[in-house]
Simulated assay, not measured.
Amino acid sequence: MKQFLYLFRGGDEGYAEQSPEEMQAHMARWGEWMTKISNTDQPVPGLPLHESGKVVADGGNLITDGPFTEGKEIVGGYVLVEANDLDHAVELSKECPIFEFGGTVEVREAIKM
């Protein structure tokens, strides 16, 4: 099995318009999906990311607030999943709840070093 990283982008606008009950139900679907794509009875590792942060460049000499990208391009969270190959990892991503609000999943293989 290989490891793949799912990077989640977009979908925040529709999510923010939900009632607290709808948000809770949506988050429950995330938990169910993350357990479903796991090889165990526990959810795959992953977390949502805070919308703000810092960008460090030039060996630490340049530190700016960020990220400053268009909203749909900001990475909102990540998940690590094991799959046989890229096609399998893509197939596992197809039921991700982010699609309910127009978000995307970028699937990237983690290279062993």
Rank of each mutant, 00 (worst) to 15 (best):
L80E: 02
V107R: 03
E32F: 08
G103H: 03
E51S: 15
V55Q: 02
T40C: 01
R29W: 09
D65R: 00
P67T: 04
M23F: 09
E22L: 09
L92V: 00
R29N: 12
G31S: 06
Q18C: 11
L5C: 07
A110P: 12
D58W: 12
G103C: 06
H26R: 14
D87E: 11
V55A: 02
E109P: 06
Y6I: 04
G103T: 01
L49Y: 05
N61T: 10
M27W: 14
L86V: 05
K94Y: 05
I63D: 00
M113N: 15
V107M: 00
A16Q: 14
D87R: 14
S19I: 04
K94Q: 09
F68I: 06
A110M: 11
I37R: 07
F101Y: 12
C96D: 05
G102V: 02
H88P: 10
A16H: 13
G31L: 06
L62D: 09
T69Q: 10
R29H: 12
G66W: 02
M23S: 12
E91K: 15
N39E: 15
D87V: 06
K2W: 11
Y6F: 06
K36A: 09
M1T: 11
E91M: 10
V56Y: 08
V55E: 01
V81W: 01
R108H: 05
V79Y: 15
A28E: 14
G77S: 00
E82M: 03
L5W: 07
S38L: 01
H26D: 14
V55M: 05
V107H: 04
G76C: 03
G77I: 00
G14S: 07
Q24Y: 14
P97C: 02
S93E: 04
W33E: 06
P20G: 01
I111H: 14
A83E: 03
G77H: 04
V90Q: 04
A57I: 02
E70W: 03
I98S: 02
S52Y: 13
G103M: 00
G59Q: 08
Q18N: 14
Q3I: 08
F68C: 05
I74N: 12
V56C: 01
T40Y: 07
A57C: 13
T69K: 10
P45N: 10
Q42M: 13
A25G: 11
D58P: 12
G31H: 08
Y15W: 13
M23L: 09
G71M: 10
G60Q: 06
V56K: 08
F4M: 00
H88T: 07
S93P: 05
L47V: 04
E95V: 01
K2S: 13
F4I: 02
V75A: 00
R9E: 09
T64I: 06
R29S: 11
P20Y: 00
A83H: 07
L7M: 08
P67R: 00
V44A: 02
D85G: 09
V90H: 07
V75Q: 03
I74F: 09
E100V: 09
R108W: 03
T104Q: 10
I111Q: 14
